[in-house]
């Protein structure tokens, strides 16, 4: 049986792991290669590296990070952040990514999704969708871009269906309301999106406890992504997967 995946996420800038809330006040949080290896040993099913570099030079260093992580990592690696062209995607794959994450560029240039999917296959294309609750609503979300700084007015459900039609093989769905709050994933959002699309959906934003990951799977997520819950050393990936297994969710032992 296909198992549910637990995916730690490393935010990387200029070759170092960084931490901050909503990409503000970033501080150094260690070596990405050592952390990647440690997560694999703990039983991570995949790893996501989000490149939050601000300059071209920093971005070059992030490519080198991907190369070094690839040499030690024998599980799938998705790299996102700043992918704006097929060439960007190709460079990441050449450095060692198995999948590329496309976020803001998917909105500004939707044809990029088709172009990357045609060249590398749908299974290679993860479209990162950042969702924020519409004002005064608790059941409607709009797409936000540019690290949450810009609201687009586009309905998230329709947007997810649209990116799948264009070739997205997977959706990384982040709740911008929950991200960094430690209050759990936005389960209503997960339910709606996983019902609306036929590709796998990765839940992201808000996890602070194994119970949150279990809830997300029950709400329809195929995989759960988390950062701070693992970085802070509060829980290991193994502890989380044990809790999921105890709750009757199929995970890779």
């Amino acid at each position: 049986m296909l198992t549910k995946r637990v995916i730690p996420c490393l935010d990387v800038r200029d070759g170092r792991v960084v931490k901050g809330i909503k990409f503000q006040n970033l501080r150094d949080a260690g070596c990405p290669v050592a952390q990647a290896k440690s997560y694999e040993e703990q039983g991570a099913d995949e790893l996501v590296i989000l490149d939050v570099s601000a300059t071209l030079e920093e971005r070059e260093n992030s490519l080198e990070t991907v190369r070094r992580v690839r040499e030690v990592l024998s599980i799938p690696l998705t790299v996102g952040g700043g992918v704006r062209s097929v060439d960007n995607a190709a460079a990441l794959l050449e450095a060692g990514a198995d999948k590329v994450g496309i976020n803001t560029a998917a909105y500004n240039n939707p044809g990029l999704i088709n172009a990357v999917a045609e060249r590398f296959g749908n299974q290679c294309v993860v479209v990162a969708v950042d969702a924020a609750l519409c004002e005064n609503r608790d059941d409607a979300w709009e797409l936000v871009i540019e690290a949450g700084t810009k609201r687009t007015g586009h309905d998230v459900i329709a947007w997810c269906q649209h990116v799948v039609e264009r070739g997205a093989g997977e959706i990384l769905l982040t709740s911008w309301d929950r991200d960094g709050t430690r209050s759990g994933y936005d389960l209503a959002l997960l339910r709606e999106v996983s019902r609306a699309v036929g590709v796998p959906v990765i839940a992201s934003g808000g996890a602070a406890h194994p119970a949150h990951l279990i809830e997300a799977i029950r709400a329809g997520a195929d995989a759960v992504l988390a950062a701070s819950i693992f970085h802070d050393g509060e829980f290991t990936v193994g502890m989380v997967k044990n809790a999921m297994a105890d709750a009757g969710i199929e995970v890779r032992p």
Binding site: N122, E170, P200, D222, R252
Partner: peptide, 12 residues
Amino acid sequence: ASLRVPQLGWNN
């Protein structure tokens, strides 16, 4: 078509 496609993940 009733399954999530692509199949992405670990299977035994």
